[in-house]
Nucleic acid binder design. Structure first.
Lengths: 111, 111
DNA sequence: TATATATTTAGACAATTATCTAAATATTGA
DNA sequence: TCAATATTTAGATAATTGTCTAAATATATA
């Protein structure tokens, strides 16, 4: 989930997602939409893939990228849970004084 | 919008949003949930504020932070448009060969 | 007014990121 | 098998980010 949010933080990557929302495209086709070099786009595609937001499949000479809507919907779920119908989900109470601060932000648990 | 996505890319900031979803809290209360120093949390609050995701108001000695659900819903909208009912929204076609690449990714337009 | 409390600002530093060029790999087809 | 095309990997570099400590600012209260 954290990887997804990080991947979505870049405007180029968000635009790639929008392009793939229309239809599957090859790396080269995607690169043609941007003023960036192909290696840079390849790097962005790699970040999206690492986050699970896209998949790739070689088709002969080409590599075709497609959207993984499941992961995208997971992120959507995060927002729905937050903005959605006024349900109460309490957070952890503050940590005790002597053990300075709370125990969130462990980088492991999903936030 | 880009600032919102960037702000959401950090797990600490996402957790702050969840804390504020429950109720308004002072900077100190928020900081108590994390193992980070108060200046670091202040920095994160500043990023959230800059993105318009939270607001602050001084109350005497304290500064109370609250969620701006409007901006949060804008981001939610981005996902809904993407994942939602199968409407077709076409992207710009690829740029011509001689003017090397597309004209997206101008960093100005919202993506 | 002096001191304590709450919070931010400033400045430093290490880690991460976005981008580039050059080179490597994979596939196709002559 | 060789050359062309599609894409990625490697390595470099500048910019951005997340964190810290120390200092500054704002408010409350004795």
């Amino acid at each position: 989930m954290n990887e997804s949010f990080k991947a979505l933080a870049d405007p180029t990557r968000r635009q790639i997602i929008r392009l793939l929302r229309e239809k599957d495209r090859t790396a080269g086709e995607i690169a043609d939409y941007f003023r960036m070099t192909k290696p840079s786009i390849s790097h962005h595609l790699s970040a999206l893939k690492h986050a699970g937001l896209v998949q790739d499949e070689r088709k002969g000479q080409f590599i075709v990228y497609s959207l993984n809507t499941t992961v995208l919907e997971e992120v959507l779920g995060w927002f729905l849970e937050l903005t959605g119908a006024g349900n109460s989900n309490e957070a952890e109470p503050p940590a005790a004084k002597d053990q300075p601060r709370g125990k969130l932000q462990s980088d492991k648990e999903e936030i």
